[in-house]
Amino acid sequence: MHDSHIKPKQQTFEAEYVFQLYVAGDSANSTQALHAFTKLCEEHFSGRFRLDVIDVLQDYRQALDNHILVTPTLLRIYPLPQIRVAGNLSDEEQVLSLVRG
């Protein structure tokens, strides 16, 4: 598993975009989603985002409480409304249009 659970840490409250990415260990889909979405954020929301990566294998209660049945699942927490995207986020254009809302 990747060690970057929260990144970048310094932009805690100023972030324009807050995301949660639920992954299941280092499964293929999860690894792919993490790479793809980190890249996307750096490119399009640089300095304006916060991304929490939650491994459901480590913390099932998070999955339980947020009804995360499929992994990977991306949640846009902020801005509202919440947006939920399931999948390995391989299609950058599609993901971008979804999370920009």
Partner: peptide, 28 residues
């Protein structure tokens, strides 16, 4: 008892698996 809402109009981008469900089952 657990009943997660299922939204069929979920946004999808690429492949996914039932890792969340399995994690919940295993953890609980």
């Amino acid at each position: 008892l657990y009943a997660p809402p299922i939204n069929r109009k979920i946004n999808k981008s690429g492949d996914f698996d039932l890792g969340g469900l399995m994690a919940i089952i295993e953890g609980q």
